[in-house]
Amino acid sequence: MSEVPTELKYTKSHEWIRQEVDGTVTIGITDHAQELLGDLVFIELPEVGSDINAEDAVCVVESVKAASDVYMPISGEITEVNETLNDAPETINDSPFDDGWLIKVKPSAAVELEDLMDADAYQAEIKES
């Protein structure tokens, strides 16, 4: 059974979102997503400073047999990317919700956060699939 921390928000495409105290959000992929993909071998990260719209592809996570786009749950500016993933993509497999975060974003429309799923809804979503 995959882990689904209650304090996070989620999307149908298996991203998680954590609201930080400074108004930014941290984004990663869920435990369920890393299980589906298997051992990750490469993460393509965006450039810091770029503005990306909600639902646009922002990262690519790659395993031996699959490559999957990660979509922006909300619109905003990339303020930081997790550089450690360049050398250690397996961090996502080991710690999807903590050390394996992907990007930090300054949201341009905070209201979009309200449309995201909570842990229960996401739990139900992955049970269905």
Binding site: V41, F42, E62, S63, V64, K65, A66, A67, D69
Partner: peptide, 12 residues
């Protein structure tokens, strides 16, 4: 590096 290739990545 097969994830670059058509049999996995298809239209991308």
């Amino acid at each position: 590096l097969q994830a670059r290739e058509q049999h996995i990545r298809r239209s991308k």
